[in-house]
Simulated assay, not measured.
Amino acid sequence: MAQFSDSDEGKPVTMGDEKVGMIAEVEHGTAYVDPDAGITDRIKATLDWGDRDEDTYPLDESRVDAITDDEVRLRSEM
Rank of each mutant, 00 (worst) to 15 (best):
D60S: 13
E25C: 06
V64W: 09
D17H: 07
D51F: 15
I39N: 11
V20E: 07
E71C: 03
D8N: 06
I43F: 10
E27V: 15
E18N: 05
D6S: 04
S76Q: 07
T46F: 04
S62F: 10
W49S: 11
A24F: 06
S7V: 11
D36T: 04
D41N: 07
V13H: 00
E77T: 13
D55P: 12
E71F: 06
K11A: 11
A45Y: 03
T30F: 10
I43Q: 01
T14P: 00
T30Y: 05
K19V: 14
R52E: 00
L47A: 09
T40I: 08
P35Y: 05
D34Y: 11
D70N: 11
T14G: 00
T46Y: 05
A31F: 12
G38P: 05
G38C: 09
F4M: 03
D17G: 09
S7K: 05
E25V: 10
D70W: 04
Q3T: 14
R52Q: 04
I43K: 02
D55L: 10
R42G: 15
P12G: 13
P35Q: 00
M15H: 01
T68F: 14
H28N: 12
D8M: 04
L59D: 01
E18I: 12
Y57A: 08
M1I: 07
R63V: 15
I39F: 02
A2T: 08
A31M: 08
D41Q: 08
T30L: 14
